Computed example of a mutant assay.
Amino acid sequence: MRTTIGRRLTGLLTGALLAAGTLFATAAPAQAYDPDPSVSTYYRDTDTCPCSGGTLTDPFDGTYFAHDAGGTAVKMELNDAGWFIGKVEFHPNDEKLWVYDTKNDGDTFYVAVGYSSGGSYHDLGTFSAPGTSETVDLTVKDFDIPDGAYVDITVYDGEGRADLIAAARGTGGAVA
């Protein structure tokens, strides 16, 4: 009788552990990219813009930078094993950050933005695309960055600015 009860108890415990494991496995956060995605970074002097085409072309919506004297625009394309997984753009005209996630893979990346002006560094926060089931997820942030400020764009694989992927620096426009 003890053997039968022991087997039943073992079976119940095993089933409960498997069910709990399944529950935790489905609730776990997405895995980080490993290795990190490769990044191609493009800069445009917006004195000579409007700019589009060439290396600014991509399979989702291309990129267009407007004229803004003294500005340096930035486009960062992220690729993972040949897949275009996203892009980050800084537009000096209107000081906008565009973050695109273009692969529904259960993972995202995080973009920290800050600028240097007047001898101080100003952290504007960390942003990511919303992570829906859409083909392209997009977040656009509109900042108030002083003319001529250096704008730092840093891409991370993990929340909390963990696992650095790449960094770039643009410049806010309208420098006299």
Rank of each mutant, 00 (worst) to 15 (best):
F109C: 04
A25T: 02
T48W: 10
D137A: 06
T48G: 13
F60C: 09
K141S: 13
T132N: 10
G21M: 08
A129D: 09
Y156I: 05
C51Y: 06
N93C: 15
Y121N: 08
P146F: 06
Y42K: 00
L164K: 08
A28N: 05
Y110G: 02
R44T: 09
T46L: 06
A112L: 07
V175F: 10
Y64L: 12
G70D: 03
D123N: 12
P92C: 07
G71V: 06
T3V: 10
D107T: 10
L17H: 12
D123Y: 12
L56A: 03
S38F: 02
R2T: 13
R7Q: 04
G54R: 01
Y100K: 11
C51S: 14
D107Q: 11
G70W: 09
T14W: 10
F24C: 00
D142T: 14
G21V: 05
G86T: 12
G118M: 06
T126M: 00
G15N: 03
V39L: 01
G106S: 01
A28Q: 02
P59Y: 11
S40K: 05
A69H: 14
E134P: 01
Y121D: 03
T3Y: 11
H91K: 08
T135W: 13
P35M: 01
G106F: 06
A66D: 01
G6C: 13
A162Y: 07
P29D: 04
F109Q: 02
Y115A: 07
N104G: 13
G158H: 08
S117A: 10
M76W: 01
V113H: 00
P35K: 02
D107F: 09
D147S: 15
P59N: 08
A66P: 03
